[in-house]
Deep mutational scan, measured.
Amino acid sequence: MASDGVVVEIGKVTGSVGTTVEIPVYFRGVPSKGIANCDFVFRYDPNVLEIIGIDPGDIIVDPNPTKSFDTAIYPDRKIIVFLFAEDSGTGAYAITKDGVFAKIRATVKSSAPGYITFDEVGGFADNDLVEQKVSFIDGGVNVGNATPTKGATPTNTATPTK
């Protein structure tokens, strides 16, 4: 695992066909100046998982989280898009600690492993708008004895992609 920078880890949970599971997305290594904004994309298989919603985690402190935390689910493109932009203008609602960034709610549709993997990152910046190093650890849903650990090695991303 990367020793510096922010680590975004997609949790690994267990479920069975027809059940709804909650998959946490963790941030670790949050910089001392916090995270003022970030955007990134995960990939998944809508034939295996139906993403039914995404909720902000406990490290989102904006009293009205829909102003700073936004997501979009595109089953036709097989992606989930995340956007966080601190909304106070003063840094008061920045992410300042490690913990759960988001909770992905999904219904298991198939007995195949439900991988959720890193696809791309736009950027991560602290309260001074300084770009942060970030790496990703894939996860998803274990169905029966299947284990979604494909790509469990962190993917280092030093520069934003478009």
Rank of each mutant, 00 (worst) to 15 (best):
residue 89 G to T: 03
residue 97 K to R: 09
residue 101 F to M: 14
residue 67 K to R: 09
residue 122 G to Q: 00
residue 88 S to T: 04
residue 95 I to T: 09
residue 25 V to A: 06
residue 46 P to T: 06
residue 145 N to P: 12
residue 91 G to S: 13
residue 48 V to S: 05
residue 87 D to H: 15
residue 119 D to V: 04
residue 22 E to G: 06
residue 80 I to P: 00
residue 146 A to N: 13
residue 157 T to Q: 14
residue 134 V to C: 06
residue 157 T to G: 12
residue 37 N to M: 01
residue 50 E to Q: 05
residue 140 G to T: 14
residue 11 G to R: 10
residue 54 I to A: 03
residue 44 Y to T: 06
residue 122 G to Y: 00
residue 66 T to C: 11
residue 17 V to R: 09
residue 161 T to E: 15
residue 37 N to R: 01
residue 79 I to E: 01
residue 128 D to P: 01
residue 5 G to N: 07
residue 53 G to M: 14
residue 150 K to Q: 13
residue 36 A to K: 00
residue 136 F to Q: 05
residue 99 G to C: 06
residue 134 V to N: 04
residue 105 R to M: 03
residue 66 T to L: 05
residue 147 T to P: 12
residue 151 G to Q: 13
residue 115 Y to W: 14
residue 152 A to Y: 09
residue 3 S to R: 08
residue 29 G to P: 12
residue 26 Y to K: 04
residue 41 V to L: 02
residue 27 F to H: 10
residue 49 L to R: 03
residue 57 G to Q: 15
residue 150 K to Y: 08
residue 109 K to P: 08
residue 40 F to G: 01
residue 119 D to W: 02
residue 20 T to H: 06
residue 125 A to M: 01
residue 8 V to H: 00
residue 39 D to C: 00
residue 118 F to P: 04
residue 148 P to Q: 03
residue 81 V to A: 02
residue 14 T to F: 12
residue 11 G to D: 14
residue 93 Y to M: 15
residue 14 T to R: 09
residue 66 T to D: 04
residue 91 G to I: 06
residue 52 I to M: 11
residue 8 V to I: 14
residue 84 F to Y: 02
residue 18 G to R: 07
residue 26 Y to I: 02
residue 51 I to P: 04
residue 15 G to C: 04
residue 73 I to G: 01
residue 66 T to I: 13
residue 32 S to L: 07
residue 140 G to D: 11
residue 81 V to F: 01
residue 123 G to W: 00
residue 152 A to Q: 14
residue 111 S to F: 11
residue 159 T to F: 14
residue 10 I to W: 01
residue 54 I to V: 04
residue 94 A to L: 04
residue 160 P to S: 12
residue 129 L to R: 01
residue 88 S to Q: 09
residue 61 V to T: 08
residue 52 I to H: 07
residue 60 I to M: 07
residue 55 D to S: 07
residue 38 C to Y: 01
residue 45 D to V: 05
residue 59 I to E: 04
residue 38 C to M: 01
residue 12 K to S: 11
residue 62 D to P: 14
residue 27 F to E: 06
residue 30 V to T: 06
residue 136 F to M: 07
residue 118 F to M: 15
residue 157 T to H: 12
residue 58 D to N: 06
residue 37 N to D: 02
residue 71 T to N: 03
residue 117 T to G: 07
residue 152 A to M: 03
residue 135 S to Q: 12
residue 148 P to H: 03
residue 17 V to D: 13
residue 7 V to E: 06
residue 45 D to A: 08
residue 76 D to W: 02
residue 7 V to K: 10
residue 36 A to P: 02
residue 44 Y to C: 15
residue 144 G to W: 08
residue 140 G to W: 06
residue 49 L to C: 04
residue 91 G to H: 03
residue 87 D to G: 14
residue 112 A to D: 12
residue 68 S to A: 14
residue 119 D to N: 05
residue 11 G to K: 05
residue 139 G to M: 05
residue 158 A to G: 13
residue 78 K to R: 12
residue 62 D to L: 14
residue 141 V to N: 13
residue 85 A to E: 00
residue 8 V to E: 06
residue 92 A to E: 09
residue 12 K to F: 15
residue 139 G to T: 02
residue 45 D to E: 08
residue 61 V to I: 08
residue 117 T to R: 08
residue 107 T to Q: 09
residue 162 K to R: 05
residue 78 K to V: 03
residue 34 G to P: 02
residue 125 A to V: 01
residue 28 R to W: 14
residue 81 V to G: 02
residue 157 T to C: 14
residue 103 K to C: 15
residue 25 V to S: 08
residue 124 F to Y: 02
residue 128 D to W: 03
residue 149 T to S: 10
residue 9 E to N: 07
residue 105 R to I: 03
residue 74 Y to D: 00
residue 38 C to A: 08
residue 127 N to T: 02
residue 21 V to M: 05
residue 93 Y to E: 13
residue 69 F to W: 15
residue 158 A to R: 12
residue 77 R to P: 12
residue 144 G to F: 09
residue 124 F to T: 00
residue 93 Y to K: 15
residue 125 A to D: 01
residue 3 S to D: 03
residue 153 T to N: 09
residue 84 F to W: 06
residue 12 K to V: 04
residue 54 I to D: 06
residue 113 P to C: 09
residue 105 R to A: 13
residue 31 P to Y: 13
residue 137 I to F: 13
residue 150 K to D: 07
residue 50 E to A: 05
residue 73 I to K: 03
residue 93 Y to D: 09
residue 18 G to N: 07
residue 58 D to F: 15
residue 6 V to I: 15
residue 28 R to Q: 03
residue 111 S to D: 09
residue 40 F to D: 06
residue 76 D to Y: 02
residue 66 T to P: 09
residue 33 K to Y: 01
residue 89 G to I: 15
residue 70 D to L: 15
residue 60 I to R: 15
residue 7 V to P: 10
residue 88 S to V: 02
residue 54 I to W: 01
residue 32 S to N: 06
residue 161 T to D: 12
residue 125 A to E: 01
residue 137 I to M: 08
residue 35 I to L: 07
residue 57 G to S: 10
residue 156 N to K: 10
residue 94 A to H: 02
residue 142 N to L: 12
residue 32 S to Q: 07
residue 151 G to D: 09
residue 46 P to D: 03
residue 25 V to G: 04
residue 157 T to I: 10
residue 142 N to R: 14
residue 46 P to Q: 05
residue 100 V to N: 06
residue 35 I to H: 02
residue 11 G to Q: 05
residue 110 S to G: 07
residue 88 S to H: 07
residue 137 I to W: 10
residue 161 T to I: 10
residue 157 T to F: 10
residue 95 I to L: 04
residue 111 S to Q: 08
residue 161 T to G: 08
residue 80 I to A: 05
residue 38 C to R: 00
residue 131 E to Y: 01
residue 78 K to A: 06
residue 85 A to P: 00
residue 97 K to G: 14
residue 28 R to A: 12
residue 138 D to W: 06
residue 138 D to C: 05
residue 30 V to C: 03
residue 96 T to S: 10
residue 10 I to F: 03
residue 145 N to T: 11
residue 62 D to W: 14
residue 118 F to Y: 05
residue 143 V to W: 06
residue 87 D to P: 15
residue 6 V to Q: 14
residue 53 G to I: 09
residue 24 P to T: 03
residue 113 P to G: 11
residue 9 E to L: 08
residue 27 F to Y: 14
residue 119 D to T: 09
residue 69 F to R: 06
residue 130 V to K: 06
residue 3 S to E: 10
residue 112 A to H: 11
residue 63 P to S: 13
residue 18 G to E: 04
residue 140 G to C: 09
residue 68 S to G: 11
residue 84 F to S: 03
residue 115 Y to T: 09
residue 116 I to V: 07
residue 89 G to V: 07
residue 49 L to Y: 15
residue 119 D to C: 05
residue 155 T to I: 10
residue 154 P to T: 11
residue 44 Y to Q: 06
residue 48 V to D: 06
residue 95 I to E: 00
residue 27 F to Q: 12
residue 114 G to V: 13
residue 118 F to R: 04
residue 125 A to L: 00
residue 70 D to I: 15
residue 56 P to R: 13
residue 83 L to H: 01
residue 106 A to Y: 13
residue 98 D to N: 05
residue 3 S to H: 05
residue 22 E to S: 07
residue 86 E to L: 01
residue 159 T to P: 12
residue 103 K to Y: 15
residue 153 T to K: 05
residue 41 V to Q: 00
residue 142 N to H: 10
residue 49 L to I: 04
residue 86 E to F: 00
residue 118 F to T: 05
residue 66 T to E: 05
residue 107 T to G: 12
residue 37 N to P: 00
residue 109 K to V: 11
residue 15 G to S: 06
residue 159 T to D: 15
residue 45 D to I: 13
residue 156 N to D: 09
residue 126 D to G: 02
residue 27 F to L: 07
residue 86 E to S: 01
residue 81 V to Q: 00
residue 96 T to C: 04
residue 88 S to F: 14
residue 153 T to H: 08
residue 87 D to I: 14
residue 49 L to G: 15
residue 108 V to K: 07
residue 91 G to A: 14
residue 117 T to H: 12
residue 43 R to Q: 07
residue 95 I to R: 02
residue 69 F to D: 02
residue 92 A to R: 08
residue 85 A to S: 03
residue 96 T to M: 04
residue 149 T to L: 13
residue 65 P to C: 07
residue 17 V to L: 07
residue 132 Q to L: 09
residue 42 F to Y: 02
residue 62 D to Q: 15
residue 47 N to I: 04
residue 84 F to P: 00
residue 5 G to C: 06
residue 147 T to K: 12
residue 147 T to S: 09
residue 120 E to C: 02
residue 100 V to F: 13
residue 65 P to L: 13
residue 69 F to H: 06
residue 147 T to A: 12
residue 19 T to M: 04
residue 28 R to C: 15
residue 62 D to R: 14
residue 20 T to W: 07
residue 96 T to K: 07
residue 30 V to H: 08
residue 94 A to M: 08
residue 10 I to R: 00
residue 91 G to P: 14
residue 14 T to M: 04
residue 16 S to H: 09
residue 34 G to Q: 05
residue 35 I to E: 13
residue 161 T to F: 12
residue 138 D to V: 06
residue 146 A to W: 04
residue 124 F to S: 00
residue 92 A to L: 10
residue 161 T to R: 10
residue 16 S to N: 14
residue 145 N to W: 12
residue 23 I to L: 11
residue 139 G to H: 12
residue 55 D to G: 14
residue 114 G to D: 09
residue 28 R to D: 10
residue 162 K to E: 03
residue 22 E to P: 12
residue 102 A to V: 05
residue 21 V to F: 13
residue 80 I to R: 00
residue 80 I to M: 08
residue 120 E to Q: 03
residue 160 P to I: 14
residue 123 G to E: 00
residue 65 P to F: 13
residue 101 F to C: 04
residue 59 I to N: 08
residue 146 A to R: 12
residue 10 I to K: 07
residue 132 Q to D: 01
residue 118 F to I: 02
residue 5 G to H: 05
